[in-house]
Design a protein around this nucleic acid. Structure first.
Length: 497
RNA sequence: GUCCCCUUCGUCUAGAGGCCUAGGACACUGGGUUUUCAUCCCAGCAACAGGGGUUCGACUCCCCUAGGGGACGCCA
């Protein structure tokens, strides 16, 4: 049997560990069966999709060694592999679904929908579309369209009965249709939603097996409806457990570093990450935990996949990485270390800052240490000797995180502008405002220029240092976070997001 | 709130009815090797969520409860 798998990330934000996790299993399974592994970019959200993110996803997957047989940059027999270049396809499928009565145009306003959902929540019902436009007559539809009224295409979902579908790891799953929303398939901007795009592309690209996150389990009924409406064969579905934070919630940026680049910049080897990810929810028959991708491919067996959500444990990741580091030859160690520390022009960037601040060569390395490796651990007392209270420091660190998460591109001048403006609206002297940031970023109150440092470190490391500084200061309580949220709102009358 | 999924040491996991006195790994603790540290070696700590069934026998099968997670968007 011909096996084809895919990973279909949306290019929003930083390349996520979850993407690598899912890509790994899809790729290994396809290659184990002499099949193809496809990378497809689902940029179906015009508002949030970024070109830069598409590139970042490809770069990091390649860095990990998770390269693909067909994809946006290398093409393939089912080109194009970018959703936004396939709009015509989705539209014609959506039309087809409308013609056969599997879907219908909906002219409801967002306000009305929000209203309906609010009422349903009040009455403790599952919030979903109320069927308002289901039985619009053809004449009515064409006159509304002619009048230029914006509309979406929705999937028609049965009122009663149950949906049955199959997950390879969990077996038969049944969901009452009454719980399934009449999902939008085509948005008013003419773009498909992920549900439509994924179903259509998977079919047209002849995808046979899908390994994806468990978060998609509840949308299976909708997808199955699309498949059945078109008389398409549903691919074999394997819903992998979700990677978890240490508190067992779904791995999230706020609680833990989720960006693959963070792990790269922290000095983990690609093979460590792949090996570790492979042990999340899967185990070798002989229980060995350290293995190569060749060994993984040889022994991978989806029936050994477990369904409980594994906590992503950095301690164990560090141990594994140590194992791999120690087995490097000295030459390899040297080469890889130098590339990691000074690659990508980093040394030049740093030395530019260093030269004018240097009197003797032996000053250099102690001053730039925090840009190369991890900074020293910070303690609360370091923040306390200035003009700011602990709470103010926390507020600055927290707001800086929020500000920086919106900065794009990640360049010194833009970062400066944003933070300068933040200090102004916070009504703080810039000097005072910067103090906790110097400590958080460099571990010292005096260091190389802050904004250059932040640019050189990159967003992932910067964010993690800010987060770690917040922890060192005792963290932000729920109550405090509420206060901060309010303050943040008042500083930004026109929300940035 | 509703629906769906999940439940073995703190964490990752082995376990497909008797092999379980529940095994391994990380972390932690103690000891040994080593000029220090790290590595390495040895030892220790530590779990079947609870309750009902089924069975001669349940970590393994079924049900209930509890807990955790996810989904409920013109996000993916």
């Amino acid at each position: 049997m011909k096996v084809r798998t895919r990973v279909a990330p949306s290019p929003t934000g930083d390349p996520h560990l979850g993407t690598a996790y899912v890509a790994l299993f899809n790729r290994i399974f396809a290659h184990q069966h002499n099949g193809q592994f496809v990378l497809r970019i689902e940029d179906t959200d015009q508002g949030r999709s970024r070109q830069s993110s598409t590139k970042a996803i490809q770069d990091t997957l390649r860095w990990l060694g998770l390269d693909w047989d067909e994809g946006p940059d290398i093409g393939g027999p089912f080109s194009p592999y970018i959703a936004s270049e396939r709009l015509q396809i989705y539209r014609s499928i959506a039309d087809k679904l409308c013609e056969t009565g599997m879907a219908f145009p909906c002219f409801c306003s967002k306000e009305r929908l929000a209203d309906v959902r609010a009422h349903q929540r009040e009455r403790k019902l599952t919030p979903k579309y109320d069927g308002h436009c289901v039985s619009l007559s053809r004449q009515k539809v064409s006159s509304l369209k002619a009048a230029g009224k914006p509309f979406v295409i929705r999937l028609l979902v049965p009122n009663d009965g149950v949906c049955e579908f199959h997950d390879q790891l969990r077996g038969k799953i049944t969901v009452p249709w009454s719980q399934v929303d009449m999902q939008v398939l085509l948005k008013s901007d003419g773009f498909p939603t992920y549900h439509l795009a994924a179903a259509v592309d998977d079919h047209l690209m002849e995808i046979t097996h899908i390994f994806r996150g468990e978060e998609w389990l509840s949308s299976c009924p909708k997808q199955q409806l699309i498949y059945q409406g078109l008389e398409w064969q549903v691919p074999a579905l394997y819903h992998l457990p979700l990677l978890r934070n240490s508190d067992r919630s779904k791995l999230s940026k706020r609680k833990q570093a989720t960006s693959i680049n963070y792990y790269k910049r922290s000095g983990f080897l690609p093979k460590t990450l792949l090996n570790y990810l492979a042990t999340m929810g899967w185990s070798m028959p002989d229980e060995r935990e350290k293995f190569t991708m060749q060994e993984f491919q040889k022994h991978f067996d989806p029936t050994r996949l477990s369904t409980t959500g594994p906590v992503f444990d950095i301690d164990k990741l560090k141990w594994l990485n140590g194992e791999y580091i120690r087995e490097l030859s000295l030459a390899q160690f040297k080469e890889q270390l130098l590339d990691w520390s000074f690659g990508e022009q980093r040394l030049e960037r740093i030395l530019q800052l260093m030269q004018e601040r240097t009197e003797k060569f032996d000053d250099v390395f102690t001053k730039m240490d925090y840009l190369i490796g991890d900074r020293v651990e910070v303690v609360a007392s370091q923040f306390e000797d200035g003009a700011l209270t602990r709470e103010n420091c926390l507020r600055i660190l927290e707001f800086t995180q929020r500000k920086l998460s919106l900065v794009e591109p990640w360049k010194r001048d833009g970062i400066f502008k944003e933070l300068k403006q933040l200090s102004v609206v916070m009504n703080l002297k810039f000097r005072d405002f910067l103090k906790p940031l110097f400590i958080a970023i460099s571990g010292r109150s005096v260091s190389l220029p802050l904004f250059d440092s932040i640019e050189i470190l990159g967003s992932d490391i910067t964010m993690s240092r800010l987060r770690s500084a917040i922890v060192s200061l005792g963290g932000i309580s729920k109550k405090q976070l509420k206060v901060f949220d309010k303050d943040w709102q008042s500083l930004h009358p026109h929300p940035l997001e």
